[in-house]
Design a protein around this nucleic acid. Structure first.
Lengths: 240, 240
DNA sequence: CGACCAGTTGAAACTGCTCAAGTAAGGTGG
DNA sequence: CCACCTTACTTGAGCAGTTTCAACTGGTCG
């Protein structure tokens, strides 16, 4: 059997789409997970959670899965020294929970007053087993979350403070308004303190502050009082 | 007021299992994905790939999914400045590919001479749709990969060079020999150069070298010529 | 009003990076 | 088999960006 033709001498790096811009997770063809809410989880429990409330803590064994209708949340891990790493954000329309029942590897806390749907593991499993399209949609979400994690890992490892902040803002702006990402000027609600940004980018609050001041001075982006204003979205993406 | 390390202002952070040690992904009850190889993909194409060969490049549209029988591989992204971020490693017994057909967000290159099974998307989809247990096993793998990404994100963001290298070695040692992780002394084949470790931990080769020298001097771990020797595995975990 | 928290700014310290040079190891062709 | 070439690894010294520490501002809420 021959070895593959794609062999590349170990020292030669191949650049296909090097360091691509942040990818929108446009899932062409493929329903959103929340499409099943109305049809299959119509009677599931709706819950309201206040800003700062925890949906669950790290290590919790949860027998429910969730869908976000309104409000933002964050997934985070606590570190021994009291700091925390924000792993990802949860936005409206997105699912949350574990297909394999297990102690939660992270905690989830609301950034907003939020409204969610809690689905029992049993109901979830039933639908998962009976509707392959649903199972597939869940996989798509898991893959997208993995891609975001990879993106952020790269960001944290290799980019400057300014760029890390830029990319986070750009990513969230795009996720928050999936419609018109081509628009020049945008303004989105973004309920994040500088501390949240610091914990998500693995920077210190002071460093985030300096980066935001710089972005503000450059006229690239302004984040104040829970809302983000970007005069030229493309300019923001380019300065990432 | 003085800043106490564990102070928990009412609505804010709660520390449940702070900064837990690296978690083995023991999936209690739940079959491994490769359990389906013999029964359903018996006739799928087996391929051998040489060390350094690419399974696919970043941006490739692949119509196959893969299972690793033998050999290690790495998933990585290339950056504009010629550096690369290794996102994850693929070990024997693990699946690789995308449930949602899409341009690959990373490249995959062999670290070893490897043997893999290539399954057509169609065959995969058929099984995914007809066997919920298989779909569930795939989800478990995706969740485990996500957890590893989160772990590494945290590592890169918050830990010192020495600890990052430690944790990577510990994680890989555990994944490579899923049986006896309690053993005191272990020796595993680990086909990684210092460059690989550097690219996985977002450190420079020189820094990795210094860290490895230090670990060697401390008698914690020795990585040389593609194999890792650890006199006391628990000591390694504790120095993470 | 005073307490408190988020945000801001400055100056010094530290970790990992850069650059530079050198050694050991592995593979190839004579 | 050795000579040579290339890659992997090692070590040192100075530099740079982020962190740390400390102080101050401004808004919010009791």
């Amino acid at each position: 059997m021959t070895h593959m033709s794609l062999k590349v001498p170990s020292h030669t790096t191949v650049y296909t789409r090097p360091d691509a811009a942040i990818q929108t997770d446009r899932r062409n063809g493929g329903e959103r997970v929340d499409a099943w809410l109305a049809t299959h989880f119509a009677r599931a429990v709706r819950r309201r959670l206040a800003k700062g409330a925890h949906l669950f803590l790290e290590g919790a064994e949860s027998d429910h899965l969730y869908f976000f209708l309104r409000g933002w949340a964050m997934k985070y891990k606590s570190l021994l020294d009291g700091r925390r790493q924000i792993l990802d954000f949860v936005l409206p329309g997105e699912p949350l929970g574990f297909v394999a029942a297990q102690p939660a590897p992270y905690a989830v806390e609301m950034l907003n007053d939020a409204e969610i749907v809690a689905v029992s593991r049993r109901a979830f499993d039933d639908l998962f087993s009976s509707d392959p399209a649903f199972a597939r949609a869940i996989c798509r979400e898991l893959e997208a979350a993995g891609a975001r994690a990879h993106e952020r890992m790269t960001s944290i490892g290799y980019r400057s403070a300014r760029v890390r902040v830029c990319r986070l803002l750009a990513e969230l702006a795009e996720r928050a308004r999936p419609g018109d990402d081509e628009a020049g000027a945008i303004a989105v609600a973004m309920p994040l303190s500088q501390r949240h940004i610091a914990d998500a980018t693995a920077l210190r609050v002071e460093t985030v502050c300096r980066a935001l001041v710089q972005l503000h001075d450059e006229g690239v982006a302004v984040l104040r009082r829970g809302s983000l204003r970007v005069p030229d979205f493309q300019a923001l993406q380019e300065s990432c």
